[in-house]
Simulated assay, not measured.
Amino acid sequence: MDNHGDYKIIGNSRQRYSYGIDLNSSWNGIDLRMFLQGVGKRNYYPPGGDHYFWGIYAQPWASLTKFNLDHWTPENPNAYLPRPKSYVAEQSGIELAATQTKYLQNAGYLRVKM
């Protein structure tokens, strides 16, 4: 077996803990129905080239959103993102597009329908 050093499997894009509940109520001629549905646990890692998540890190023409403004500077060394540099998230498997735990997103959700 090959020794991959600190390589380990992270995340799971399959949705786990799916749930749903349908609530009905009526009182004095007023009816209310609410449907709650969601996924308790799911991981998402934005792929290389996903300019909606990576912004200027994937494409130089992408806008700098508020999310992208938390980048490294000498005054902000603990920023969420590195210094702005185009194309570092463009190709899968290298630089920012290399899967890592820092940018692994929680994709669990709760949807309410009335």
Results as ranks from 00 to 15, higher is better:
88 V>D: 13
100 Q>E: 08
58 A>K: 01
23 L>V: 06
84 P>A: 13
37 Q>M: 05
99 T>L: 15
14 R>F: 00
76 N>M: 02
68 N>M: 00
49 G>D: 14
66 K>V: 01
100 Q>A: 12
72 W>Q: 10
28 N>D: 04
21 I>C: 12
20 G>C: 03
91 Q>L: 06
42 R>K: 12
77 P>A: 03
1 M>T: 11
78 N>G: 05
36 L>A: 05
16 R>S: 10
99 T>N: 13
14 R>V: 02
64 L>H: 15
4 H>L: 15
88 V>W: 12
70 D>K: 08
109 Y>G: 07
22 D>P: 01
24 N>D: 04
68 N>C: 04
114 M>Y: 02
71 H>D: 07
48 G>H: 01
107 A>K: 13
19 Y>A: 10
32 L>M: 04
61 W>I: 13
8 K>I: 07
45 Y>G: 02
58 A>N: 10
102 K>P: 03
68 N>Y: 05
94 I>Q: 15
17 Y>E: 04
7 Y>D: 11
44 Y>W: 00
31 D>G: 07
1 M>W: 09
105 Q>H: 08
103 Y>Q: 07
81 L>D: 04
37 Q>K: 11
14 R>Q: 00
37 Q>E: 07
5 G>I: 03
21 I>H: 09
83 R>H: 10
31 D>Y: 09
87 Y>N: 13
67 F>I: 00
36 L>Y: 03
67 F>A: 06
99 T>R: 15
6 D>R: 05
44 Y>H: 08
20 G>M: 05
23 L>K: 09
20 G>T: 08
66 K>L: 02
81 L>I: 01
37 Q>I: 02
71 H>T: 04
114 M>D: 07
101 T>S: 14
5 G>S: 01
107 A>F: 11
110 L>D: 02
87 Y>H: 14
63 S>E: 08
39 V>R: 06
111 R>V: 06
101 T>F: 08
101 T>W: 12
92 S>A: 10
1 M>E: 11
64 L>V: 12
40 G>A: 10
36 L>H: 09
40 G>H: 11
36 L>F: 12
18 S>N: 13
71 H>A: 13
34 M>I: 03
26 S>C: 07
25 S>N: 07
41 K>T: 06
43 N>G: 00
10 I>G: 14
72 W>T: 02
22 D>R: 03
49 G>L: 09
12 N>R: 03
84 P>R: 15
75 E>H: 14
24 N>M: 05
110 L>N: 03
15 Q>V: 01
9 I>G: 13
98 A>S: 12
23 L>P: 01
46 P>C: 08
38 G>P: 09
12 N>P: 08
17 Y>T: 00
76 N>K: 12
21 I>S: 10
37 Q>T: 07
11 G>Q: 09
87 Y>L: 08
80 Y>I: 04
67 F>W: 09
12 N>Y: 05
112 V>Q: 11
9 I>N: 13
18 S>L: 14
38 G>F: 07
3 N>W: 13
1 M>F: 11
44 Y>T: 00
68 N>T: 01
38 G>S: 07
102 K>T: 03
49 G>H: 13
105 Q>A: 10
63 S>P: 02
73 T>W: 05
87 Y>G: 02
98 A>D: 15
5 G>P: 06
61 W>D: 15
35 F>Y: 14
59 Q>A: 06
79 A>F: 07
